[in-house]
Design a protein around this nucleic acid. Structure first.
Length: 308
DNA sequence: TTCCGCACCTGCCGGC
DNA sequence: TGCCGGCAGGTGCGGA
């Protein structure tokens, strides 16, 4: 499932291949995948064709590609924004390649962009089996703190639909003290707080469980009973687990998550708790438990992560 | 204002 | 063999 390391892997891959390329054509095969596009699929194509990608940026799990061009008060900066949702992929192919060229199209390709120049064509496919992801063009607005909007951009701009998303722990402008304070002021469980993208972004179900296992904190521990040092430790464990995952290209359980070249990450081999129900805790040997939580699953060690 | 539950969506898998 | 329900889970919205 695409969480921060997976999205950053995709962002990095896109930055290597699509910068300064011009959009020659846009095909939308599934309208639902552009449901947030004002004006629908036709508006998406109309806005993108002929435009050039000036950067590839990310905040949390939101990706955006600012469109090059002169901006003004009447014509603010805009970008192509993508969210991968549960199963989204952005795959690059050369036209004519047997496994994904212009003629061959997989069953889950929802949107296809043809990128120039004419003598070096590139196909960018938005593939999304479960269709929780989406693409749309958006207006860029100034960041609240005046710092760059996210990774991959020096501009203090962020997509309007992602302006409420907090910075992630790997962001140079991430304010750990402020987040610790905000978390402790909430009256909720620590895992809910970790998954709240308006508090800290980029953390999904997998890395939340892994961070809490490392920090030896129960997923339901009340945030307003935690000491600052405990919250700080959870955040640092989240940072560490995501940093380690980023090095190996993210977590992958199956073909649902791949980078822009279609390669899977290897971090799933390093998971200590997530998806290991019944297996011995690597620390104490107690069987890992799985419980239903927030319409999903939580994995934890009942001995190392006691609810006090 | 804050918190929580649920719908959205598709494909896989196990049980019957 | 085919049908059905459960499960996977990020985000946004409505209700409490």
């Amino acid at each position: 499932m695409p969480e921060l390391p997976e999205v950053e892997t995709v962002r990095d891959g896109l930055a290597r291949h699509v910068l300064d390329r011009t959009v020659l054509d846009v095909e939308v095969f599934r309208d639902y995948s552009v449901r947030r596009q004002e004006g629908g699929p036709e508006a998406l194509a109309a806005e993108l064709v002929g435009r050039r990608f000036a950067a590839v940026a990310r905040r949390g799990k939101f990706l955006w590609l600012p469109l090059a061009g002169v901006t003004s008060a009447d014509s603010p900066a805009r970008a192509l924004m993508a969210h991968l949702g549960m199963s989204g992929q952005l795959l690059l192919n050369r036209p004519g390649r047997a496994d994904g060229g212009l003629r061959a199209r997989g069953p889950h390709v929802r949107v296809r962009l043809l990128l120039g120049p004419e003598d070096d064509l590139l196909v960018l496919d938005f593939v999304d089996q479960r269709t929780f992801g989406h693409l749309s063009t958006v207006v860029l607005v100034p960041t609240a703190d005046g710092h760059p909007g996210g990774w991959g951009t020096g501009d203090a701009l962020v997509p309007a639909p992602a302006a409420h998303i907090a910075r992630d722990p790997l962001d140079p402008a991430f304010d750990e003290d402020a987040v610790v304070d905000q978390v402790r002021r909430r009256h909720t469980g620590i895992k809910r707080a970790l998954l709240d993208q308006t508090l800290v972004s980029g953390v999904g179900n997998i890395y939340a469980d892994e961070a809490l296992w490392r920090a030896r904190v129960h997923y339901a521990r009340a945030t307003d009973t935690m000491r600052p040092a405990q919250v700080r430790e959870v955040l640092r464990c989240a940072t560490a687990v995501m940093s380690e995952s980023l090095v190996v290209g993210g977590t992958s359980f199956d073909a649902l998550y791949v980078d822009v070249n279609g390669s899977s990450g290897y971090f799933s081999r390093s998971l200590q708790a997530y998806g290991r129900a019944g297996e011995p805790c690597p620390r104490c040997g107690t069987p890992i438990r799985r419980v239903a939580f927030m319409n999903r699953s939580s994995y934890f060690c009942p001995k190392c992560q006691r609810l006090r």
